[in-house]
Write a protein that binds this DNA or RNA. Structure first.
Lengths: 104, 104
DNA sequence: CTTTCATATGAATATATTATCATATGTTCA
DNA sequence: TGAACATATGATAATATATTCATATGAAAG
């Protein structure tokens, strides 16, 4: 059994800390927050999201990809369009906590 | 009573969305996460934090300032040193939610 | 009152991130 | 099969961010 030599704070390894930071980066951009928050309503396709948040299709697609890579949203094809929806229960909680903080 | 014309998703105004994103930016950097997580233990001065997270004093001070501006930490002077501590109950919850997500 | 220890800060550089533009891919339907 | 529609993607340029270095501020102790 190898000894862990990585840098560590309490029970959090360097590697996990970087992952955590990367996760929170997903919430750290207003376009992405808008998308996530928009999906609180349920499944939507790209065009709908673009209209809701008033951003162009390319920017939205790029951010959807980032959110999907982070496993915060999932997608499925339906005919010509792709439907996106939240893929993690923590998303709502995290955003709710954030809201509570700024509302104080 | 003026009509609100700002961009809005459900009950979240553009302004609040930007604030939310700014808040999450604080968690979106590994140095800042390390500092916050380090402060889970309680009050610490700058030198202690630097040692714990293995970062130089200047970088830590810059980030402490950002965290303080975001009202996530507070400080008080004690003799020559300045003691920092968490200033928001949501910090632990937000980080905990993040941890749960990445551990899945 | 000047030296030492602790922290903060400004400027500069290096790096990361985002939106935009142009274009590619993939689906449906005539 | 080729328009028309929906989405994705690569490259680029603009902007934001973090770290470092040098130095400033501020407290305490001799």
């Amino acid at each position: 059994m190898a000894v862990k030599n990585d840098y560590m704070i309490r029970d959090l390894r360097e590697e996990e800390l970087l992952e955590l930071a990367d996760l929170f980066k997903m919430f750290a951009d207003s376009t992405r927050i808008k998308i996530l928050y928009d999906l609180f309503d349920g499944e939507k396709n790209v065009t709908e999201i673009c209209e809701d948040i008033e951003m162009n299709q390319s920017a939205v697609s790029h951010q959807l990809k980032a959110l999907k890579t982070a496993k915060l949203i999932k997608s499925r094809r339906e005919g010509k369009s792709i439907k996106y929806s939240l893929d993690d229960d923590h998303v709502k909680t995290i955003i709710a906590m954030g809201k509570e903080h700024i509302e104080e």
